[in-house]
């Protein structure tokens, strides 16, 4: 049991936190702009590398480099929207999906061109885990990631339910035509959607680098679990996406735990878990666990 918590549950929650932060953006963008944003993983990659540069140049720890990552990633997202998504706004959204597929490639090839394709780490050396009650050994980076995600979740909840901008976003996600009739400035709301989605993606990207390493496929590889998390939580429900991310992260780790003497699935198939969950959701509950907007 202790082993399960130390080596499966905590890493699962950590991984889930990363999925969650990415999935919030996917869910909000799907909710408000109505398309599956295929470049979201690569926004995470951009964030991770922007932080890496700050770590190298300024010699600061990765967590302190997060603001820098956020700025660069937000700029990338706003630029992509302005140059590649906005011109297609009046067309069927599937064209924007195709464009975002292209943006994913563009972002990644820029990262590869600028930073090369070798794996990098924010810092080298072994981190001693923190030990609680003599039994729970939790890596410091896991504590940081989980606590930060918890704080961001609370902040996001407050933002969406209390602030004018948050309510406007939910209104646009609910019914864009009515939002326009109510005089809401849709383009401004879309801009903020990108800023929030990209900022969280940047943070998630830095967390991936903190947890493992920084490489150019970092974000693309996470796209599938992030989509699954957004679907699980119900499209257009950012808090649902967080729950979805945690469920998928924990499920991926737990599936490799030898509950009955043998693991449920081979560890090498871990990333299939997200796909299985996604397929089950699409078959049985396309609106997601938390009743998102069904399309």
């Amino acid at each position: 049991m202790i082993d399960f918590i130390n080596f499966y549950l905590i890493p699962g929650i950590t991984l889930g936190s990363i999925y969650a932060l990415g999935a919030v953006g996917v869910s909000m963008i799907f909710g408000i702009l109505r398309f599956a944003h295929f470049a979201h993983g690569d926004l995470m990659t951009v964030g991770a590398y922007a932080a890496l540069t700050a770590v190298w140049v300024l010699g600061i720890p990765a967590l302190a480099a997060i603001p820098f990552a956020i700025i660069v990633t937000c700029l990338a997202a706003l630029l992509a929207d302005r140059l590649f998504y906005r011109p297609l706004r009046d067309l069927p959204t599937i064209y924007t999906v195709i464009a975002s597929f292209g943006v994913a490639l563009i972002l990644r090839s820029i990262v590869q061109t600028v930073w090369g394709t070798d794996s990098q780490v924010y810092m080298t050396g072994f981190q001693k885990p923190t030990i609680f009650f003599d039994t729970f050994r939790i890596a410091t980076r896991h504590i940081q990631i989980i606590l930060a995600t918890a704080a961001l979740t609370v902040a996001l909840h407050y933002f969406l339910s209390r602030t004018r901008l948050g309510k406007s976003m939910r209104a646009v996600a609910d019914d864009p035509d009515l939002a326009a009739v109510a005089g809401l400035d849709t383009e401004r709301i879309i801009r903020w959607t990108w800023i929030i989605g990209a900022a969280l993606a940047a943070i998630a990207g830095v967390f991936v680098g903190l947890d493992t390493d920084v490489h150019t496929n970092l974000g693309w590889n996470l796209l599938l679990p992030m989509f699954a998390a957004a679907l699980l939580g119900g499209i257009g429900k950012p808090l649902g996406a967080i729950a979805g991310g945690l469920i998928i992260g924990i499920a991926e780790e737990a599936c490799t735990y030898p509950f009955f003497g043998d693991t449920l699935i081979a560890p090498s198939y871990k990333s299939a878990v997200a796909f299985v969950i996604m397929v089950l959701i699409l078959i049985y509950r396309p609106q997601g666990l938390f009743r998102g907007r069904l399309m």
């Binding site: 309510k167 939910r170 609910d174 019914d175 939002a179 009739v181 005089g183 809401l184 400035d185």
Partner: peptide, 23 residues
Amino acid sequence: PQTHNVFSSLSVDENLDVGTFAA
């Protein structure tokens, strides 16, 4: 509008709030 004239996932209170955002 004739149909779809409330934000159905928002509370009544929030629907009223949205009415103040533009003006």
